[in-house]
Nucleic acid binder design. Structure first.
Lengths: 341, 341
DNA sequence: GGGAGAGTTTGAAACGTTCCATGCGGAACG
DNA sequence: CGTTCCGCATGGAACGTTTCAAACTCTCCC
């Protein structure tokens, strides 16, 4: 049977023979209501099937009990794991998470930020598309806390949580170089993405320290930070004559690395004997790949949890809040896809 | 500079020297406002940085402009692809999607359904945890449309979108049997999950048709529908003496199949020469595995889009709406992880 | 008997919209 | 000139909460 009409606090009050204010008190501060009354009201709530109207609460409170999380790509396991950490922490505080997927497009990011603003969210966690500074400033002027995720704050005007991608790139490249490969390459994604640029910088640093010229690192750009992008680059690499093919490649993330790996196998180029491959993120599929992938591990869930905590802190504290920039250290995980030593 | 105070429609009205109602009209039915007035109001909106308060709109409208999507596991690419389809369709209709992760736990599912109900969502798309019937009935009695996703409606009392998992299981098993393996196995997930049970039923049907007794199909249960679950089963299989090891295994989904595949490789059991492996879902990682995985493809995004459309239709139509059960056909994708013929 | 004070309950205002019914001024028409 | 009609603007009620100050009822004590 469809009823289609919501029962409001007023009807509960009438049914229980008390005032609206008392019902509200039962809901929000049950301890100040006499136990007899409280039970009567609770019985009415159950009987009528009353459900709070969140919109009305929000209107009164001025802010909604949600936070926004804007990521570059929900299909990337890195971000779903991150989202998981955010969700856990938000749940504890009784907040819901609105998950938004910007697809690395400014237009979609902008749309979602407007939506979140209209929803008067408690705050926004965002991995910004390059050049999102202005859009975020708009939000903040309004008093909505913003925490940058996996991205450092250029201005110190906000909190941020990030992993040291330069160090990560350095770790991966140092490891690759330790086997003494003749030629090395970096498979990049869109260079406007900070993570892509930082990891390259780290890789160059490792080159220099090992006595190579930084320009000896060949950079090959993949279309996107996904498996398809890696496959295309893999085809290119496979098509090179064995004599000029890199003996070690560092990929900007694991999805790309998996794409490259697949093309190598398909073309009977052995991993790691003929070519070493290192990825980045250490997503679950990296360990599960048939040639388990050497990768750089980021504390993904912890990243999400920390970001959420910073956001909640800022939202709660308002004026006394001190912005903080938290930086985690990545960790190299060596598996079979790279030559040892 | 932090302002911390929202500017309301009232202030815009004062600033532009018109009434509140006129500002509202500019926002919602600009064509009925004289162009001179309209421009004046729009200028004020820009100048004051006015942003609509969604809560107030919702309160007035009685329903929020969001839909809920409750899935079993956001980390499973099948569900993120599905979510993508839902998001596209919802966006077109100007609705936001609240993505909720039930983790196959009744408690979390219940919590999220309550949250969505309090938010007065337009409707709920859900892949229910086993035995969610009662929880959903509660929502529907209230008039909130519910569409079951990847799950058939037992009662015809609601819309549903699903893929014929029995057929999918049949396709996969028929293909495996075509190479004439001695022993075959099904790697299941939690048997309470309908998809797991249906795929098994299909596999048994194929067995029978090929002249085997259904009990010749060995069923091995994995802890969860994820890579880790597959790895554990893979270890078990690798530990079997070659003489009693199945020559073909059908896995309840691709994540499990990838886990099994990895353990095979690690133990130098060749795929597909020593053992054929078929998965289910055809997630992107299936094609990208180093031994590309034979799998059963589901139209994931289309599933999401169709579900969203059914929901929007029901929400718009109210009483005249006819519930529909849409069933898609899965498709076998043969790759290198299974023996041909 | 009266007053203080604790323990409960409550009326009413406020949050920011939307929308209906109404008003106003001017043009068109007879 | 009087009537009708149209285009546009607006006052105010309503949506469902929460919260504050005020009121009420007891009990206790002087």
């Amino acid at each position: 049977m469809r009823v289609n009409v919501a029962v409001s606090i007023r009807e509960v009050a009438a049914h229980a023979g008390v005032s609206v204010a008392t019902v509200s008190n039962v809901l929000n501060r049950p301890e100040i209501v006499a136990s007899l009354t409280r039970e009567r009201v609770q019985a009415s709530i159950r009987e009528l099937g009353y459900v709070r109207n969140e919109s009305a609460r929000q209107l009164r409170a001025g802010r909604s009990r949600t936070i926004g999380l804007v990521v570059l790509d929900v299909a990337n396991p890195f971000f779903t794991d991150l989202a998981r950490g955010v969700e856990d922490e938000a749940n504890k505080a009784g907040l819901a998470v609105i998950l938004c997927n910007s697809d690395d497009q400014e237009r979609k990011e902008q749309q979602y930020l407007e939506l979140l603003e209209e929803h008067r969210v408690h705050g926004v966690l965002i991995t910004p598309v390059a050049g999102a500074g202005a859009r975020l400033a708009g939000l903040q002027r309004w008093g909505t806390p913003v925490v940058l995720v996996d991205s450092r704050s250029p201005s110190r005007g906000q909190c941020s949580v990030a992993v040291d991608d330069v160090l990560g790139g350095d770790l991966a490249m140092s490891h690759l170089l330790s086997a003494g490969p003749e030629r090395v390459a970096y498979v990049a994604g869109p260079p406007a993405i900070r993570q892509v640029a930082d990891r390259l910088e780290g890789a160059r640093r490792a080159m220099t320290r090992a006595g190579h010229a930084p320009q000896d690192l060949r950079v090959i750009e993949a279309g996107g930070l996904n498996v398809g992008g890696g496959q295309k680059v893999g085809e290119q690499i496979a098509a090179m004559p064995a004599g000029s093919r890199p003996a070690a490649v560092f990929c900007a993330n694991d999805l790309i690395a998996l794409g490259v790996l697949q093309e190598m196998t398909r073309n009977h180029i052995r991993v790691p004997e003929d070519i070493s491959i290192a990825g980045y993120d250490d997503i679950d599929f990296a360990a599960a790949a048939a040639v388990p992938l050497t990768s750089v591990r980021q504390p993904r869930q912890q990243l999400g949890r920390t970001a959420a905590r910073l956001l909640l802190d800022e939202a709660a504290d308002g004026d006394t809040h001190q912005h903080r920039q938290v930086i985690f250290e990545p960790e190299l995980v060596v598996r079979q896809s790279t030559q040892p030593q």
